[in-house]
């Protein structure tokens, strides 16, 4: 099977799994992030941390991420799926009209990536000061959750709806725009110690001169090289591995040609965890 075909199958399987999670468990992101907010609101009011559903969701997904990496981001997050679907549509239109949207330069991109940590810090600080409730209407995630449960957001969420629309524009412009630059949950995940066995490594010695297939395929524009300062950005989509013409890229588990089954296995495990955490519909 040639590389291009394998890549097509891999992408097909990925979008299929993403749609399954979108239909069965679209609220996982919101619940896990609510766990983050819960911790800091409890700290602010000097109350104990109890086993709330949100805290359990956060810890469950974080534990999965520590073991398997940000597989959740790449395959299960409803927001990520929304972005991927919008970008698929955008790429298709760009290809047909032969008009390409301007790309954000790499240097600028590497700075923009830090914004999500600022957003995380902002949310944490508003929780610690006990004023988070005042900003509730400006949360684009709450707006999105209401839409996934087939409800309209309502007048209180006007600011949030506008922000969501702007984010969707960004998602059309660049692949994984929200995930790379704005996602506070992604910021939390990227700070977790991901087991090195789940990181993607590259045998640089056998790389073809001038080839950048892995980097071009990467939705978050990562320089794949195992445990680096940016390896927390990797969303475990597996496209780099499939795209490499020399099959140089691998994780700690080296199976040749059957990576699809490993991916499906991880998706099943994650779906089970979501079911146990009562995050499925």
């Amino acid at each position: 099977m040639d590389r291009k075909k394998r890549l097509k199958i891999q992408k097909g399987v990925r979008i299929a799994i993403q749609i399954v999670f979108l239909l069965l468990a679209p609220a996982v992101f919101t619940s896990a992030f609510a766990g983050v907010k819960y911790i800091f609101t409890q700290l602010a009011s000097a109350q104990m941390l109890e086993w709330s559903a949100f805290l359990k969701a956060l810890l469950g997904i974080c534990l999965f991420t520590i073991i398997f990496g940000r597989f959740f981001c790449g395959y299960a997050c409803a927001f990520g799926t929304l972005g991927d679907l919008l970008y698929m549509f955008s790429a298709f239109v760009q290809k047909k009209t032969k008009k390409k949207l301007p790309k954000i330069p790499e240097k600028a991109g590497s700075y923009f990536r830090k914004i999500k940590y600022l957003i995380l810090a902002g949310v944490v600080v508003t929780c610690l000061l006990g004023v988070y409730d005042k900003f509730r209407g400006s949360s684009p995630w709450d707006v999105f959750s209401r839409l996934t449960s087939l409800q309209l957001p309502g007048r209180a969420y006007l600011v949030g709806s506008i922000i969501l629309l702007l984010i969707m524009v960004g998602m059309i412009w660049e692949e994984r725009f929200f995930c790379k630059y704005l996602c506070p949950m992604g910021a939390v995940f990227s700070l977790l110690p991901i087991l090195p066995v789940s990181l993607y490594c590259r045998d640089r010695e056998s790389c073809i001169n001038g080839c950048s297939a892995c980097k071009r395929q990467c939705p978050v524009s990562l320089d794949i090289d195992g445990d680096t300062k940016d390896s927390g950005e990797c969303i475990q989509c597996n496209q780099c591995l499939t795209a490499c013409p020399k099959e140089n890229i691998h994780t700690g588990i080296k199976i040749k040609g059957n990576e699809i089954w490993l991916i499906i296995g991880k998706a099943v495990v994650l779906l089970d965890i979501c079911y146990l955490l009562q995050l499925t519909r």
């Binding site: 110690p193 991901i194 445990d227 390896s231 927390g232």
Partner: peptide, 11 residues
């Protein structure tokens, strides 16, 4: 090797 992992796990 894996310095970032070690730092993050200590954190």
């Amino acid at each position: 090797k894996n310095t970032h992992f070690k730092i993050k796990i200590i954190n």
